[in-house]
Amino acid sequence: MLCKRCVMPESKPDIYLNEQGLCNICSAFESQNNNRKDDTVFHETELVKILNKHRGKHKYDCLVMISGGKDSTSSLYYIVKKYKLNPLAMTFDHGFENEEAIYNIKNAVDSLKVDWIFFKTDFMKEMFAEIIRTKSKAVICHLCSIWYMQFTYETARRYDIPIIIAGWTKGQSNIPDIISKGKCDIDAPEYQSMAKATKKFLKEHVRKMPKYKDFPMSMEEVIKRAAKKHKATVLSPHWFLKTPVEEYTRLIQEELGWRFPKESYPEKSTNCLLNFLSVLLSLKHYGYTHYHVEMSKMINLNMMTRDEALDLLEKNWDDKMIDDVLTRLGLSRKDIEDG
């Protein structure tokens, strides 16, 4: 049974539907909205203030994490064209990035004439395989985000960059206190079971693997470690802008030759190949994914209709891709089946 307003399923223990059929995300949003004050809403002028504070004071004004998707590509576009900053673009490939995404990134950095670091590594491969082998309910994307945020902070420190720019949507933030806190608020009620499983996996398995002995145990630890060495503000232009996704997608298609990938989940997004496996496992273990949470927030912010979200979240990909990813991890279908 789905929430009447958004796309969250009744999937205890994290998601509850109340008597009106609304889930806890919607109920929380409703009460927050009833007490809404202007100072909880971000305005573009606030973004400009932050950017201006650091403009021209370092070799690079900001570090832009670009994955080749519409949100991060448009963030890079805005940073260069609208806010006229000098960014360093950065992409990390854990070995599962898709070619269409890389094509989009190359096009963007070439057109916008920005410096770009492309970092490819198999460092995370064993950890991902271990999740499957141990039948852990840890979310692959959570582990990946811990790793890439640590790497991002390190890069910012290395080049003395004061601002880290991401392409996160309003649905991927926890307004208003998200700035400098990184992406995933795994303490949010809707993520509690997932966070618990991820922490358990890190504690019981990852710490025992010599290769990962320094791997942070949580996003909080990443932020704490980063704060000791180098202060950087993390933000996404999309939190401050009212531009609808269709509009900025059209903009980068026209200006940067950006393309949608052939296959993706959710529809009209660009994600790595490992994402398909992560989604499959999240749906299996929890009945929803972090994309469901993101879109539910977008629905509550009136940036998307429920029907649109349901269309985008429909699982509609070739299962052969799952097999390919499993093979590259040295695994097979049997490893993700029950029993």
């Binding site: 202007d38 305005h43 573009e44 002028t45 400009v48 201006n52 609208k82 806010y83 006229k84 802008l241 009212k242 531009t243």
Partner: peptide
């Protein structure tokens, strides 16, 4: 009038700079 200013800038897609 901060909201009105924000609206004016966003209507034209410009920033204060």
């Amino acid at each position: 009038p901060i909201s009105a200013i924000n609206y004016c800038l966003s209507k034209e897609g410009i920033i204060i700079n």
